[in-house]
Simulated scan of single mutants.
Amino acid sequence: MAITREGRICSFCGEPGGPGTDLPLIGGLGAQVCARCIDDFHETIHDEELLAAARSTLPWDSMTDAEVLATLPMIMSSAEQTTAFAHEWVDMLRTRRVSWAEIGRALGVSRQAAWERFARKSGDKGATA
């Protein structure tokens, strides 16, 4: 099973990126970041004024209710991407014949809880092993 960046979005700005786009994405653990956001973050951490401003305020403090509402779908898209990434990792582990018990232990849940959360999405119907 190949896990790719195709169809992913930047977890910070929400822009689609990856293969077939002009926006390279890098990252892991479900979060992806685009080159533009990396450049913005790099500029911020290397500019004392920008860094002080970033440390003193939270972005949503200066946003209107309409701006916060407009951002909510991007937050949900990023969360859904991270959840899908977890499913891909579980699929990969099952392809490697890692047991549901081992997956459950890694997640701090029972074998049954791991299976209930991930098996239906992955198509893995085997509740044993």
Rank of each mutant, 00 (worst) to 15 (best):
P24W: 08
E116C: 09
G123D: 14
A70C: 03
C10S: 09
H42W: 15
M76G: 09
A106Q: 12
H42G: 15
L72F: 02
A31W: 13
T128E: 10
T4C: 05
P16A: 08
E67K: 04
D22P: 08
E15V: 00
D40E: 11
L23E: 11
L23Y: 06
A2N: 11
E43Q: 14
A119D: 00
G17H: 04
C37F: 08
G104I: 01
R117I: 03
D65Q: 10
R8M: 10
F12M: 10
R36V: 13
I9V: 13
E49L: 12
T64Q: 07
R96K: 10
Q112W: 04
E15Q: 09
L69A: 06
V90P: 00
D22G: 08
M74A: 01
C34G: 01
A35F: 06
A52C: 14
D47V: 00
G7Y: 07
I45V: 12
R94L: 12
L51A: 11
A52K: 15
A53P: 07
T82L: 09
K125Q: 06
T82H: 01
R5K: 09
C13F: 05
F41I: 05
D39H: 13
G7N: 13
C37G: 07
F118E: 05
E67F: 11
V90K: 02
T44F: 05
P24D: 12
A2T: 07
G7H: 10
K125L: 06
A86P: 08
A119V: 00
